[in-house]
Design a protein around this nucleic acid. Structure first.
Lengths: 212, 212
DNA sequence: CATCTATCTGAACGGTGTCAAGATAATCTT
DNA sequence: AAGATTATCTTGACACCGTTCAGATAGATG
């Protein structure tokens, strides 16, 4: 058999056992290794050792699978942000660390990151668990309060949170442009470059001055 | 004929005349009306009244066509930015107007805007004409100088330009999220919301203070 | 006029998302 | 434990996709 096809004559059981999880893993693996254009339902099924129609018993759509993969990404991004707060030397650096962690995640999982926003845009919203208090949004809010913003001024606080998130997203998608390479090297690497831009956008300690 | 197919029996000439342009227009029309998933080479050819193989005499690839459509978008974005500078009441508002115009363009052509960055990421760079002095980058740089930045400090100026561009890009992609709707309405509309966020990111008049 | 070259068509290939019908096996009912 | 039910997976099919290639057409060149 030329293309290593799959037949019940293999000792693989007819029922997979945990296909949902296997499909998610396969999807993620293909996305990271071969890029978004290689991420077809059939390829995912192939990678999981299953027929092209099998995924339809676990996801209503190809899009539904992609949303699930993206959702996993949002979860991991939240974890990375939470972890980053421990690294801040003091409150003034909380936002800066979050920003750096955010961009680092996007750069380490570029295809996943893109998928996250593509599916979010299709839904015209972010998945709920990206907005939990214990997750991304909540952490940014806490960091803003820790830096001096009035915790009772919900309006300004929400605006500042959105602004910080927008800044991180913009940087995350543009840092890779190779025309910035000389400036990156002049600043001593991509992380320094990222932090320099985020500082320009007020993610360092501006709120402590202007909104205290 | 059920599906209104195309045959030489129509009085349409065998040679189209200006197919390149027609394909670009068709591609853009489909992208805006039916979304990126409907933007297939065959659909573009259909819309232009031509066989599925015809585009290959004008574009080497589907990707090549998409790059051309995106390139058109970069050009128009540049024009929108140039036009926006006339609206600034004084130098201090130059950056703000550019940011608002940038986001407005992205919101009015969301699918085109996404295509522009998708193809830019594939090329790991922005098309050259987006970086001309008379275009986007140059305008931002001029606005930064007009607001008090040292025109000879190339390092800081470039960093500030990139920061401003990143901010605008981040806002442009996130403004549409419907979870911001209440805040948008509280601020009196999407444009006011956009400006409020851009202000938070220092696109209003911060450089006049901190870098004069 | 004849020839050359650019442009367009038609038909074909493999790949894709999706669905309906049937096979298989785990679970539930009695 | 035996039979019935339900969840899961396969097979096969359909329409659409990107792409290629041989051949038709017609404008340009001599």
């Amino acid at each position: 058999m030329a293309h290593a096809e799959i037949h019940p004559s293999d000792n693989r059981p007819y029922h997979h056992g945990d296909l949902s999880r296997a499909l998610l893993l396969a999807g993620r693996r293909i996305l990271e290794k071969d890029g978004p254009s290689a991420l077809s339902l059939r390829a995912v099924a192939r990678e999981a050792g299953v027929s092209p129609a099998a995924p339809y018993h676990h996801f209503k759509d190809k899009g539904d699978l992609l949303v699930a993969v993206a959702s996993q990404g949002w979860h991991e991004l939240g974890e990375a942000i939470v972890a980053s707060r421990a690294k801040a030397r003091d409150a003034r650096h909380g936002l800066s660390e979050i920003g750096a962690a955010y961009v680092a995640f996007a750069r380490q999982n570029p295809n996943l990151y893109r998928l996250m926003y593509d599916t979010a845009c299709d839904l015209a919203d972010m998945p709920d668990h990206a907005k939990d208090e214990t997750s991304g949004w909540g952490q940014v809010r806490e960091a803003l309060v820790a830096v001096g913003m009035d915790p009772d001024n919900d309006h300004e606080l929400k605006l500042a949170t959105i602004a910080a998130w927008c800044a991180a997203h913009g940087v995350a998608e543009m840092v890779a442009f190779k025309e910035f390479e000389p400036l990156k090297q002049a600043l001593g690497g991509e992380e320094a470059f990222t932090r320099a831009i985020l500082d320009h956008l007020g993610l360092y300690a501006r709120h402590a001055r202007s909104h205290a």
